[in-house]
């Protein structure tokens, strides 16, 4: 069961049970992106607020499996307060990591690094990616 233990790490479970930055804001300065994975029902909305070249705030809401929901929480914590370029670099490297492609290991993914275990579960890559993809969409739309 080593592979599964590696997937359900303590940090992941902690974020799943106590998600940070959950619940959407009414503030119109937030850029909102909604992504749905119709094959499994994962449904995530991500909101980003950009100010002075930084991610001022990032929020999420939705439902799905533990990997999907926890990664949304970890993502919002990781990108909040970062320069837009740095947040974009982290997001893109994270997606390369979970899809098992070469990525720049010198980029500090912080807590998001625990999702490296997902690489061994190709069927779950999408669960771990969806919130980060939504964040990248908010960057494209608003940053």
């Amino acid at each position: 069961m080593e592979k599964l233990d590696n997937l359900y790490r303590e940090i992941i479970m902690e974020h799943y049970k106590n998600p940070r930055n959950k619940g959407l804001s009414e503030d119109p300065s937030f850029i909102t992106v909604h992504i749905k994975n119709p094959s499994c029902g994962d449904d995530i909305t991500v909101q980003s607020q950009f100010e002075n070249g930084k991610v001022k705030s990032c929020r999420h809401d939705g439902h799905g499996c533990s990997i999907c929901c926890s990664s949304a929480s970890v993502m919002t914590e990781t990108v909040t307060g970062k320069d837009i370029n740095e947040a974009s670099l982290i997001a893109n490297n994270y997606l390369l990591m979970v899809t098992n492609k070469p990525y720049d290991e010198s980029v500090d993914l912080e807590e998001a690094a625990v999702y490296s275990g997902v690489r061994q579960f190709p069927a779950r890559v999408k669960c771990a990616s969806i919130a980060w993809q939504a964040f990248i969409e908010t960057l494209k739309k608003g940053a």
Partner: peptide
């Protein structure tokens, strides 16, 4: 336990079942 979490466990144990809608 979300069925997709459960399905990964079953897949590891070589029990093929379906999760989803």
């Amino acid at each position: 336990v979300h069925p997709h979490d459960a399905a990964s466990y079953f897949a590891e144990k070589k029990v093929a079942l379906r999760a989803g809608h």
